[in-house]
Simulated scan of single mutants.
Amino acid sequence: MTLETVVEDIREEARARAEEIRGEGEAEAESLVEAAEADAEETLEAAERRAERNVEQERERELSSAKLEAKQMRLEARRDVLESVRDSVEEAIVDLEGEDREELTRALLDDAATEFEDADGVLVHGRADDQALVEEILADYDGYEWAGEYDCLGGVVVESDESRLRVNNTFDSVVEDVWEDELKEISTRLFDEQ
């Protein structure tokens, strides 16, 4: 065997080994690329799922927020309607005249007078526009006198220095009591809530 043959055998063996290493390297590289692509696909799918979840959560938040805003708007509209109804009631009471106003004022004074049966001096306040009416009614009560104006829709505020008692029987207080007692019924009728 000649040196040339030995060298050629070594070269041939080296080429074969190089080819084998290159094949193993390509197979490993292909395996790594496939694994990387699989990881990338999995990462992409996970990101898409997260994005879909986030979109759904944001949609739910927006929907919930819109529902709450709509509910607040309905409540505000109802509150406005109720205020308008109450304003209309108060305007109608202010506009009461004649026998109706006298009858209601007298009834409120009669009711308050039960608290002052033993009092010697009783002071009665009322709406400035009702002074003449109240003074006319007071002519039927011994020891009662007009004491001045009270800012109200009508009715009377009665007090006695002796007993330090004050009774507010104004139309305002009656409206307030009725309004509180009947608000649910008023709301049901206005907004047809069954």
Score class of each variant (00 low, 15 high):
Arg15Lys: 13
Ile186Thr: 07
Ala139Gly: 01
Glu117Lys: 11
Asp177Lys: 13
Ser65Val: 09
Glu20Ser: 13
Glu176Trp: 08
Ser64Gln: 06
Val33Pro: 07
Leu190Pro: 09
Val89Ala: 11
Ala66Thr: 05
Ala66Phe: 00
Arg166His: 10
Ala147Tyr: 06
Val174Met: 00
Glu24Val: 02
Val33Trp: 08
Ser64Ile: 09
Ala40Asn: 07
Gly154Ser: 07
Ile186Phe: 13
Glu99Gln: 03
Val158Gln: 06
Gly143Asn: 10
Cys152Ile: 02
Thr170Val: 03
Ser187Asp: 12
Val33His: 10
Glu12His: 03
Arg17Thr: 02
Ala46Leu: 13
Glu56Asn: 04
Met73Thr: 13
His125Gln: 13
Leu153Arg: 05
Glu115Ser: 14
Asp39Ile: 09
Glu91Gln: 11
Ser31Thr: 11
Gln131His: 12
Asp100His: 09
Gln57Tyr: 01
Asp111Tyr: 04
Arg50Leu: 00
Ser88Tyr: 07
Leu96Cys: 06
Ala119Gln: 10
Glu162Asp: 05
Glu136Lys: 01
Glu193Phe: 04
Val89Arg: 05
Leu133Gln: 09
Glu4Asn: 08
Asp177Ile: 10
Cys152Thr: 07
Glu180Asn: 14
Gly98Asp: 06
Ser187Tyr: 14
Ser163Leu: 08
Ala27Gln: 03
Thr2Tyr: 03
Leu153Asp: 00
Glu60His: 02
Val158Thr: 15
Glu37Lys: 14
Glu176Gln: 12
Val178Asp: 12
Ser160Lys: 02
Ala132Trp: 05
Leu123Ile: 10
Asp130Glu: 04
Ala14Trp: 09
Ala29Gly: 15
Glu24Ile: 02
Glu102Trp: 00
Arg78Asp: 00
Glu30Leu: 10
Arg78Gly: 06
Leu96Asn: 00
Trp146Gln: 02
Arg166Val: 08
Asp181Pro: 08
Asp161His: 11
Asp39Ser: 13
Arg11Thr: 00
Glu176Ala: 14
Ala40Pro: 06
Asp9Arg: 15
Thr188Val: 13
Asp95Val: 01
Glu52Met: 06
Leu104Met: 06
Glu56Met: 01
Glu13Met: 11
Val6Phe: 08
Val55Met: 02
Ser163Gln: 12
Ala139Glu: 15
Leu138Tyr: 08
Asp9Met: 12
Glu103Ile: 03
Asp9Gly: 14
Gly143Ile: 02
Glu34Gln: 14
Glu117Ala: 15
Glu136Asp: 14
Asp172Ser: 11
Val7His: 11
Leu32Gly: 10
Asp87Glu: 15
Glu76Phe: 12
Ser187Ile: 12
Asp110Ile: 01
